[in-house]
Amino acid sequence: MPWVLWVPATLALALVVLPVVGLLVRTDLRRVPELIVSDAALTALRLSLETAAVSTLACIVLGVPLAVVLARSTVRGIRVLRAVVLLPLVLPPVVGGLALLYLLGRKGFLGYLLGVTAGVQVPFTTAAVIIAQTFVAMPFLVVSLEGALRSGGDRYEQIASTLGARPWTVFRRVTLPLLLPALGSGAVLSFARALGEFGATITFAGSYEGVTRTLPLEVYVQAEADVESAVALALLLIVVAVVVIAVARPRALEGTAR
């Protein structure tokens, strides 16, 4: 490895690590335990973990077929479709939240239809949190899976087809097993992104304790009232995210290597 790579690599690592060090320096570590065990903090943490888990499952159910379509389809306009799917990666989350609000809100065409036909109001509910998290997190899964499909090629699927396997059988017995390592890695990224989602959530779901106030929103609320508590909760969020990535991602990468 060229030694010169250590210079930008060190700078990149410092850019990521030093802000966290700044939080640690700012915090009275002796008070952290009492600050993170409040009812509001524990409720926000529980809500974050539950909604992130459900949104990750939604990403898998919806994102796997979408990734296969993007990687294998030859229909016209697939590049445009791919750009639209990846749009949440570049959109500010607040813009995504506004888009969801004007789609599913009372005055949105789909929200109005749901309200009239089923009496359902989506915004400012826990369901809205899950939808917002899925909106911003699913592209991470789709990118991981589509990249794995394209780099792996389709020779195994073509062989299965020439042997008489139907398309659904090819997908279930060939494509899906090949995707499993990348699926694990993409699911971890989606969960971590959903766990830290803020902008789309507060715009589309609001900040109601026990209903829509996830841990990032609790940090924001506490920052206006008690900075020490906000910093402690921010450290808790960082620890949870690091644990999730450190525990799950190496296993996914190990599966990719095999």
Results as ranks from 00 to 15, higher is better:
107 K>Q: 14
107 K>R: 14
107 K>S: 13
108 G>M: 14
108 G>F: 15
109 F>A: 13
109 F>W: 15
110 L>Y: 08
110 L>V: 15
112 Y>M: 13
112 Y>D: 14
112 Y>T: 13
114 L>P: 04
115 G>I: 02
116 V>G: 00
117 T>R: 13
118 A>C: 05
118 A>Q: 11
119 G>C: 05
120 V>C: 02
121 Q>A: 11
122 V>H: 09
122 V>W: 06
123 P>M: 11
124 F>M: 07
124 F>D: 09
125 T>A: 09
125 T>W: 11
125 T>D: 11
125 T>I: 10
125 T>E: 12
126 T>I: 03
128 A>L: 05
128 A>C: 12
128 A>T: 10
128 A>Y: 05
129 V>D: 04
129 V>F: 02
131 I>N: 09
131 I>L: 15
131 I>W: 08
132 A>W: 11
132 A>T: 12
133 Q>W: 06
134 T>Y: 12
134 T>A: 15
134 T>F: 14
135 F>I: 09
135 F>Q: 08
136 V>S: 12
136 V>I: 14
137 A>F: 09
138 M>Q: 14
138 M>W: 06
138 M>R: 09
138 M>N: 09
139 P>W: 10
139 P>H: 08
140 F>C: 03
140 F>A: 01
141 L>K: 02
141 L>E: 01
142 V>L: 00
142 V>M: 01
142 V>N: 01
142 V>H: 01
143 V>P: 00
143 V>A: 07
144 S>R: 03
144 S>T: 12
145 L>K: 00
